[in-house]
Design a protein around this nucleic acid. Structure first.
Lengths: 334, 334
DNA sequence: TTGTAAGCGTTATCAT
DNA sequence: ATGATAACGCTTACAA
């Protein structure tokens, strides 16, 4: 079994070539206090010449890894791609590198987060709506944490969330203004919509909006286990029953796409509004109305907060980003 | 700056609790030879009790990290999501964990690959069509490598590639059979289509097919710097000029989607075939004909090859996966 | 079958 | 301003 990076230069080699101590090289590497310009110069040259790169593992043994971890539920969901893109861009000018751990729904998020902790990341961002708050607090006591999209708050970690209350209200308001009465909410499994999750909030606001506007009797929540194919199936089945809804408020864009495809296949005229703002929604063939969560912005903001925390901030910051309605042709007046 | 994982159990703690040596614990962890069932039992219990997890960094100092690295050009491209999904699934039952390094087109792929090497991954998979073969060989001498989608081969690393020659021929054949004469090829920047890259092959086959079929005079290659918006712009501009093509062969699905949206906007009747087989292509509102590369299969296969190499195989394996034509309504007889 | 001990490459403390 | 040195947690010869 070949040893990785065997033969590559170490800090020792650099020190020898520059004629200084290892400690000096280490200081130069970290821009630490107390290095003369001359020293910096010579060491820099040696580093260049040997194309030396510090081993993350050796660093981890003593201090930081300059690595931040990002846990995502799923790589296929376009919204998470947007978030990661924003995060990645925000990290570009820093010394930090991002490693990703996809949870793949599997035995849920903790396994992925633990994998990141095993790598001794200097901080971590997680999109983990379902892990227990106590467990999160434990993690946050060990390492700086920014939670993404959770509405419960802790003094121990920061959070970046979308204003789902506002977003869901606006989405419903939009459908009301178009004259829709019979609106079905398409969302994910019940077990995944606890009150403090984004989808939990959207479900609650949907129900409130229906009740408050006197449409309570027409309220209907349709659940789908995961992903798009199933949304398609579920909607197909629903569209075979009567009375038909005139509009769908989908908990996320993948669900909305599934609903649209079912509507096409059933030949039912249906207004559909999604949630997230994935790129394909703007395509003229799709033209899906959606609440744009500004994923890139949220991802970038999460990185900024995390870097602040790594630098030493200990008071919690909870950031709320406002979603924006994108009105396209999938929602029409009835 | 809080120390990560400070206070967490070490192998020492486990050894003490189980009343054995650190070496013994290490052997149990790695299922190494020479441990009695009794020992295994006691150590296992201690591990459980302390919820001990080995530090990747400490392991890296001596042996392996049980971590494999995956470099991808871009997380927003749905095809790469499919590949990563397949890879991730193939890794699920193993002791290995995957870390991802997105290159974001930025100073190109080497930076991302180096970041993975800094983490001393036990092996790496890279989608890096543009890095120099010599550089790749250097990397492959240090660590097991599987290259994804490159058609040049090396004795030093494995590769998983799609049969782009076949795929592009079939795509062109498909358009020919539908009666198209004036077919434009929409592809990425010239600098990114060297002969051994997937896109380079597709361009060449396109030109060959046009020439061989007597359509040489109609051949036209349209280049786009990156991604979908620009494909849209480029096609819009092209569709304003005469004579119009009747069909587009797009180098990948994002380009195809851009072409379709330009066609809609210009009101031009245009057949479009893409390449990759992203999920949205199957949506009835999009219904994009495409060459399905079976990304998940390719990703999973890359993992299998890499694990074999990590286990000790040193002869190179080059695997070719056959793409499949998905005929949908975006390509019609003219 | 089990234990002892050396060493991996870095950073931080403490002298100089 | 610079350098010597002691960790950090694990694996692996080698010894018992």
């Amino acid at each position: 079994m070949p040893r990785a990076r065997s033969g590559a230069a170490t800090i020792e080699d650099v020190a020898r070539l520059a004629g200084v101590s290892r400690a000096a090289v280490s200081k130069v590497l970290r821009n630490a206090y107390g290095v003369s310009p001359a020293m910096r110069e010579r060491v820099g040259a040696a580093i260049q010449q040997l194309s030396y790169r510090p081993r993350v593992a050796a660093r981890a043994m003593r201090g930081s890894t300059y690595t931040i971890g990002f846990e995502v539920p799923d790589l296929k969901n376009q919204f998470f791609s947007r978030v990661l893109s924003g995060a990645s861009a925000a990290l570009a000018d820093t010394d930090y590198q991002m490693i990703l751990a996809p949870a793949n729904f599997n035995p849920f998020e903790p396994r992925a987060v633990e994998a990141l902790l095993d790598h001794q990341v200097d901080g971590l961002i997680a999109i983990a709506p379902l892990v227990e708050p106590e467990w999160l607090d434990d993690v946050a006591r060990r390492v700086p944490v920014v939670m993404f999209g959770r509405h419960d708050r802790s003094a121990l970690y920061d959070s970046v969330e979308s204003d789902d209350e506002l977003g869901a209200r606006r989405a419903m308001q939009h459908l009301f203004e178009l004259g829709h009465e019979s609106i079905v909410h398409l969302t994910i499994a019940e077990s995944a919509t606890r009150p403090y999750t984004p989808h939990g909030v959207r479900v609650r606001v949907y129900e409130e909006a229906m009740n408050e506007s006197g449409r309570g009797a027409l309220a209907e929540v349709l659940r789908v286990d995961i992903a798009q194919e199933l949304a398609h199936e579920t909607m197909l089945e629903r569209l075979a029953r009567r009375p038909l809804p005139t509009a769908i408020f989908a908990g996320h864009d993948e669900l909305a796409l599934g609903a649209m495809s079912a509507a096409v296949q059933s030949g039912v005229e249906l207004s559909v509004i999604g949630y997230d703002g994935v790129a394909i929604a703007a395509h003229p063939l799709v033209s899906l109305s959606t609440m744009d969560q500004h994923g890139e912005t949220m991802g970038a903001r999460a990185i900024e907060l995390l870097l602040e925390r790594i630098k030493g901030r200990t008071t919690a910051v909870h950031e709320v980003v406002e979603p924006t309605l994108e009105h396209r042709s999938s929602t029409r007046a009835r």
